[in-house]
């Protein structure tokens, strides 16, 4: 699924580890275990779940991801354009075209915060959420300078759908 872009928050990042000793994942022990394992992490980084892994993580890919962003203003016709599939086609930093009408599966507006469900490709990744949010909100960004510009969007990856 690749590396998380620098500057993007996540609430659902996954990593697989192989350890030489087993972990005690009993329900009564799990909260303490996660707290203890999160202790060496910098502020803001925290383990939220651990479960045994039967197969390699790379054998399963998510089908969609939900991203969150709170823009300064939401265009009045946003849902209308989503429903009528009249979002523009934008380009990412590699120059590839992204048809937002195909990639954005749903939009939810919760008191000014947008939750976008975005389709994953066959490798379990989505188009850059920065490009997608910029596209649907009508914000122009230079894809060539995507790293510098995009990190200013406080985008969070909320969940993954499998």
């Amino acid at each position: 699924m690749g590396a998380l872009p620098l500057g993007m928050e996540t609430y659902c990042e996954l990593i697989s580890v192989e350890l030489l000793k087993p972990l005690d994942l009993a329900p009564e022990n799990l909260p303490n275990l996660m707290k203890e394992l999160s202790r060496p992490f910098p502020r803001g980084m925290e383990i939220v779940n651990i479960e045994p892994l039967k197969e390699k993580l790379s054998k399963h890919f998510p089908k969609a991801m939900v991203y969150r962003y709170t823009p300064e203003a939401i265009p009045a016709d946003l849902m209308e354009r989503f429903n009528s599939k009249t979002f523009p086609t934008v380009t990412n930093h590699r120059g590839q075209e992204i048809d937002l009408n195909q990639h954005v599966l749903s939009i939810e507006n919760r008191e000014g915060t947008l939750y976008l469900k975005v389709k994953c490709n066959d490798q379990g990744t989505t188009a850059s959420p920065f490009v997608i949010f910029a596209g649907i909100l009508g914000i122009s960004i230079d894809p060539a300078k995507l790293d510098e510009v995009s990190r200013r969007f406080l985008v969070a990856k909320m969940t993954m759908e499998w």
Binding site: S38, I47, I50
Partner: peptide, 21 residues
Amino acid sequence: KVSYSYKITFKKTGLSRFLPH
């Protein structure tokens, strides 16, 4: 030869989002 595999879900919020991969 013996090892134990786990799937770990974690969050990275606040300024920790600037922590490189």
